[in-house]
Computed example of a mutant assay.
Amino acid sequence: MTLLNKPVREAARRSVLCWLATVDADGQPNVSPKEVWAISDDQHVVVANIASPISVRNIAQKPQVCLSFVDVFVQKGFKLVGSAHEVQVENPAFSAWAAPLLAMVGQRFVIRSVLVIRVTSVAPIVAPSYRFYPDKTTEASQVASAIRAYKVHPAPQEKP
């Protein structure tokens, strides 16, 4: 079974940020927003190390991580758990792992290294309204609520 299946990939595509949770050698947690990240294949997520010294240090000490992302309009997403390692620029594998990230950033950021996460479990994240008010809560109602709360307007839909 593919952990990073189509629904996970679609939700990731709609999410602007992800949150990477790591822990240091003393068990102190760290959660850090990551703007440049991508699902690389059926088992791996790659995260650009642009300004992440604490995440990098923690992963070197304890590779267990949790990465989560949520579509803020639909208020659904996924929690991915796995182990990570850093691939530095000098590593011959860097180009392959960094390719989707470099395509995203162009000249905007310098990617210092890539954090490669091998995902071992995936769990859905849903807003409590879906559970407590299942007869009244739909994705459309959540989007409408978010549009009101964030005072934004939806973009025109692309034609297939």
Rank of each mutant, 00 (worst) to 15 (best):
N91F: 09
Q28H: 04
S40R: 13
Q28T: 14
T22G: 03
F69H: 10
K151P: 03
V116S: 05
S32L: 12
A93P: 02
D24S: 11
P160K: 13
Y130K: 02
V47M: 12
G82Y: 14
N58P: 12
P53G: 12
V36A: 05
A98Y: 07
Q142H: 04
F94Y: 15
S52G: 09
D42L: 06
K76P: 04
V46E: 07
W97P: 00
K34L: 05
E139H: 05
K76L: 09
W19R: 08
L101P: 05
C18H: 02
A140C: 05
I54L: 15
N91R: 00
V56N: 01
Q43M: 12
L17P: 03
D71E: 14
R13P: 00
T22R: 03
V87G: 09
K6L: 10
A98D: 01
A146I: 04
P156H: 01
E86R: 14
E10F: 11
Q61V: 02
P63E: 13
A146Q: 03
A11K: 01
L67R: 00
L17E: 06
K136E: 14
S83H: 13
K34H: 12
V23W: 01
Q88A: 09
W37F: 09
S40C: 12
Q64T: 14
V16K: 04
P128K: 04
V105W: 00
R108G: 01
P134H: 00
V45C: 08
M104P: 07
P29T: 07
V47N: 02
A98S: 13
L67F: 05
Q75V: 05
A144M: 08
R9E: 15
A25G: 09
L101T: 08
A38M: 10
L67P: 10
T120E: 14
S68K: 07
K62W: 09
A155M: 09
V70M: 02
G27Y: 11
C18K: 02
V110L: 07
P124A: 03
N49D: 15
I39M: 13
T2F: 13
E35M: 07
D135E: 14
P100G: 01
A11Q: 12
S68R: 06
D135P: 05
S83W: 02
R148W: 03
S68W: 05
N49W: 01
F132P: 00
V47T: 04
S55W: 00
A103C: 06
F94I: 02
P92D: 13
E35K: 03
M1W: 10
Q28Y: 04
